[in-house]
Design a protein around this nucleic acid. Structure first.
Lengths: 219, 219
DNA sequence: ACAAATCGGTTGTATTTACAACGAAAGGTG
DNA sequence: CACCTTTCGTTGTAAATACAACCGATTTGT
């Protein structure tokens, strides 16, 4: 567990908290470390959740499969990010999505109750973590709104432009790489893979974009 | 302002806080009351926001119009609900959507900084409000995920079923009314109004639903 | 190095949706 | 009551999308 303290230090949740404080907090917050290999489920839709979870290393997808096997990807979590925050409230019910490791991943569970209940003097930075968490959830909120934003686009092309523009902005460059493969991107944007593939090629032929594998360039 | 204290008492933000405490908090939190008539904008996309806003009375739409006038409705706020929570974090940027009154509405602005900065002893319940806010944001988060859920449906029919089922569940009855008119519902589900109207009638003819104006019944 | 699996692009067809235009019904106003 | 506006359903056509199937290239596992 100790070796993840430098990683935790750089997460939004522990922003502004020193390594020593983090170490003392780990037991106070009932931190439990778990490893998952590619394809394993961290959370399954319908489960009750009592933890805020930080991804120390790896990559996760928040997704949902319907009865017919159609997959819908809500988003992805990369190292340092947190999830499970939508279930901290009492009576928030069960998880609406699965969370799956897309590669070997290490996650740390924190008991929600312990986070929200301020504890003994050993945790002077406890309230700072709560505030960090507060901002993190608020930011997550914004991200969901942004996703809704490009989900509300009608055509595959508009969704692609909306998504790719956001990525370009996020990575501060018109030349960037994405972490989805084609099928995953299609599941993320809720479109048909082949139709999307088709549209991407049309856009390339029209000179709007260039791409090679997961590397894209906008014009 | 005073006459809204009983209303505030029933909001999630002030849950568990007595009327006297609310009254003393109002000045502490720099509460400002504003009235808006139908069609007026409470927030415009691109504005900076420094307040958490509670809707005391009326109804609001969170929406966005693109360059060509296509409207997309993200959600609606009804009396007692709160909004603006996605912008509490520092550096959260400007508002991503407009907020518009769909009827005569009364809203109360609370300064975010004052909410998060614990104040003098006069506000013993201050930390409870912060925790309430915390849960409220988390819950909002869930709602956004749910909306993404039916936005990720491919066809108009599936979106309608997803939305109508949720409403039935929310109102605990297969017979319920919605607060959107047809155009608004279409803007909410990101589909064409006439196509949606068409689909609704088909579903009725197939015996899946019944409806009359804004009153629906599922079978 | 080979076999198997995965991934990405392409094509044709059936289905679905968007768009524009129209008319009837309901509601509001002078 | 006449007039105007809003709302909702309907229709036909053009456009976009889903679906299934196929193939070549790349990657993975042994």
């Amino acid at each position: 567990m100790k070796k993840f303290i430098p990683i935790l230090k750089r997460t939004q949740m522990f922003s502004g908290v020193g390594e020593n404080e983090i170490e003392s907090m780990l037991s106070c917050l009932d931190a439990r470390l778990c490893e998952f290999s590619k394809g394993e489920y961290i959370i399954r839709q319908g489960e009750y959740l009592n933890d805020i979870i930080v991804l120390a290393d790896g990559n996760l997808h928040i997704q949902k499969d319907d009865y017919w096997g159609n997959r819908s990807i809500l988003g992805q979590i990369s190292a340092g990010e947190m999830f499970g925050e939508a279930y901290v409230a009492p009576n928030s019910g069960t998880a609406l999505n699965d969370v799956v490791a897309t590669e070997k991943s290490t996650v740390i569970f924190f008991d929600v109750k312990r986070i929200l209940t301020t504890c003994s003097s050993a945790c002077r930075f406890h309230s700072m973590v709560v505030q960090n968490l507060f901002f993190a959830i608020s930011e997550k909120n914004r991200k969901l709104v942004q996703k809704l934003d490009h989900m509300s686009k009608r055509s595959t092309r508009e969704k692609l432009i909306s998504y790719l523009s956001e990525e370009a902005k996020k990575q501060s460059s018109s030349h960037f790489t994405i972490t989805f493969n084609r099928q995953q991107l299609a599941d993320f944007l809720s479109v048909d893979r082949s139709a999307m593939s088709n549209e991407l090629c049309k856009m390339r032929d029209e000179g709007l974009i260039e791409f090679k594998k997961n590397s894209f360039k906008l014009f």
